[in-house]
């Protein structure tokens, strides 16, 4: 790899421990700009933790994370985040447009309220995910796939360079899944870097161009063609991937 090219994300020696158990151990990851990377690994492999550590949401026991050569705190404005859909209460009294506008809160800073400009940006993002007809819909009345699109739209209005998404394909319908894939590819076309926690091994080759195999340690990472090998998968999943000979 050329030293001159900046890395979008650079994780070095990252170790995270919850109480006694190390969840991530000595993980390194370099993500070049403009790739669509999926993180795969078995349950409890630390995928979500890795995303959270990159975002500074969990404190590492050791190691370092850089985004375009600077720590996360300095690069917040260029990072967009899509948390797992199940982490929020969808019965919260608010509507679709309002949730999407929350993506602008960081840029707005303290106390300032969202105005017309934020509303317009939110509308554009909703159009991109095909949800423009649902702006005033209460969020509890959305299907799983629609909820996921709203979360994606919220990340889009962040207008970030690097996107981190936690299981965006979890429990969504086939139409939404296709729409999300198209959107991810559009983002890559624009030179954005997208990191996605993913659980469906069948689709890795179709959807992504880079992959990271993770099971507490980094097993491998790199372009899908070189990295997504049966051997690496066996190491990651411990021989439990007989179905993966697609």
């Amino acid at each position: 790899m050329q030293a001159s090219e900046a890395k979008a994300i650079e994780v070095t020696d990252l170790t995270v421990a919850y109480q006694e158990q190390p969840v991530l151990w000595d993980v390194d990851l370099d993500v070049p700009p403009g790739v669509l990377l999926s993180i795969v690994g078995p349950n409890g492999a630390g995928k979500t933790t890795l995303i959270k550590a990159i975002l500074g949401l969990v404190r590492p026991a050791a190691g370092n994370v850089l985004i375009y050569d600077k720590p996360y705190e300095a690069q917040r404005r260029i990072v967009g985040y899509v948390p797992q859909r199940g982490t929020v209460d969808w019965d919260f009294p608010t509507n679709v447009l309002d949730v999407v506008m929350m993506g602008r809160y960081g840029a707005l800073g303290w106390v300032r309220r969202p105005g017309r400009q934020e509303r317009e940006l939110a509308m554009q993002a909703l159009e991109k995910v095909g949800m423009e007809a649902y702006t005033t819909r209460q969020i509890s009345q959305l299907s799983g796939g629609q909820q996921q699109r709203v979360f994606l739209a919220r990340a889009l209005v962040q207008d970030a360079t690097v996107y981190l998404m936690d299981e965006p394909f979890q429990g969504v319908d086939a139409t939404t899944e296709r729409a999300i894939v198209t959107l991810l590819q559009e983002l890559r076309e624009k030179g954005k870097t997208v990191v996605v926690v993913h659980h469906d091994l069948q689709t890795v080759t179709d959807y992504f161009d880079w992959v990271m195999l993770l099971n507490i340690r980094r097993i491998a990472s790199g372009p899908v063609a070189e990295t997504f090998t049966p051997e690496n998968l066996r190491t990651t999943y411990g021989g439990r991937v007989a179905f993966m000979t697609k």
């Binding site: 020696d13 170790t15 421990a17 109480q19 006694e20 000595d26 026991a61 050791a62």
Partner: peptide, 17 residues
């Protein structure tokens, strides 16, 4: 016990690294 384990763990981690 938790506090002591945390401290020990921190040094163990560092030593391993």
């Amino acid at each position: 016990a938790i506090a002591r384990r945390r401290t020990r763990q921190k040094w163990e981690f560092a030593q391993t690294m």
